[in-house]
Simulated scan of single mutants.
Amino acid sequence: MLNKAQLHIHAKLEAQLHDTGKVRALILKGRQQGASTYIAARFYWKLQFRKGKKAVIITHEQNATDNLFAMTKRYHDNVPEQLRPSTGTANARELYFDKLDSGYKVATAGTREVGRSSTAQYFHGSEAAFWPHAASHFAGIGQAVPNADGTEIILESTANGVGNEFHQRWKRAEGGHGEYIPIFCPWFWQPEYRTPAPAHFARKLEELDLAELYGLDNDQLYWRKLKIEDDFSGDVNLFQQEYPNNAAEAFVAENRDSLIPAANIMAARRAENVNMAGPLVVGVDPARFGDDRTAIVWRKGRVLTKVKTYEKKSTMQVAGIVAQLIEQDKPARVFIDTVGLGAGVYDRLGYQFYETMASSICLLSMGNLINLLSTPWKMILAATSTREIM
């Protein structure tokens, strides 16, 4: 019987298969939500009735590899005999259906070359955020699985901090770049993740917010409270990594000094009747070539009216784009992130528009940005009315 997380994953994969003819998916989830169990069952079912198909499973450590293969073997041993494929090879690393010329191979992500020598139609990467040579493995997967209809690559994992290969690929998938779709499963979908709350249990402010945002009841909140206290020694960030409410929150544990907490982001997304009054303000986060993107946002009051991104643009090109929007949209202020590449964009704009545009461009340090965000709107206008370098 599929649980809620498994049903969600199944629906997303089947929709992508229907729309594109193949599956390319990243699954971000909490602990023990059944993603690996579902994928093992999905691939066994596909191999069970198809000739000449291969599935490869790679996990982050040997114990996990053994457990996943044992799960697949359990399906095979317990399927009705009339539906069980004829077995040729069955050992600790391979399950081969001789009459179909189909089967499984499993491996552990210990060396850079794992997965490169295989050719498969179905690939399952488990706990991909913990692979020691993830970039090499991901590159190898793309060569091992042909870009053909009916093929499937499914990479699932709990989060493991920011900046690693899985996190970077997740960000690209969320942004709609490439073939992979992002699938997220929050912890509170699991009916077993609850503990009867005692009569004296009283919700703290944070728990009140969670109840409002996600519809959590006291039994779920009490389970969460005990888990944080007992398993994570009071570290909420570690709990969020293992049992996230949302995708942004999952990557917080290694990035605890985030300017804007994930809970605030979710609250803003759910806000209604947001005030759009106020002058137009533009924010620029410059990038240059590579996988990162330049992002530009237009804001009025508390509403982002437009977001645009650009790939593989030089700092001079970004400066030109910003100069053009200043001419066309006449924003009251343009804020530029100058940590790194943004300084060049700022310098070019300051030089080009010094006489007429200097008061519209503000170079911000992180500390100053925090101060501005916590300052009333009229004070922001006053604080940035002159050109400052901080």
Rank of each mutant, 00 (worst) to 15 (best):
L47V: 06
A287C: 06
R269H: 00
Q241L: 07
N368T: 09
A135V: 10
D66E: 14
E254S: 12
C185V: 05
L208E: 13
A139Q: 05
V252N: 11
R172C: 03
M357V: 05
R293P: 06
F49N: 08
T356F: 08
P146L: 00
T315R: 14
I154M: 11
T338W: 03
D347E: 15
Y214E: 14
I260P: 05
Y122P: 05
T375Q: 08
Q48I: 02
A343R: 15
S314F: 10
A64G: 05
H177I: 13
M276P: 15
V284K: 01
R112A: 15
R299M: 12
A144Y: 09
F130T: 10
K99M: 06
G150D: 00
T384E: 07
R293Y: 11
C362L: 13
K4H: 04
V303M: 03
A323P: 08
G163E: 06
G52Y: 04
P146H: 01
L226V: 02
H133V: 08
R269K: 01
Q324D: 15
T309E: 10
A40N: 12
P331A: 07
R203Y: 03
E355Q: 10
L17G: 01
M266T: 15
A5G: 02
Q324L: 02
D149N: 04
H177E: 11
D329E: 15
N160D: 10
M266V: 13
G163C: 09
F289H: 12
K171Q: 13
W131H: 14
Q168C: 09
Q220H: 04
H167K: 05
G52W: 03
I57N: 03
I58T: 13
R194Y: 04
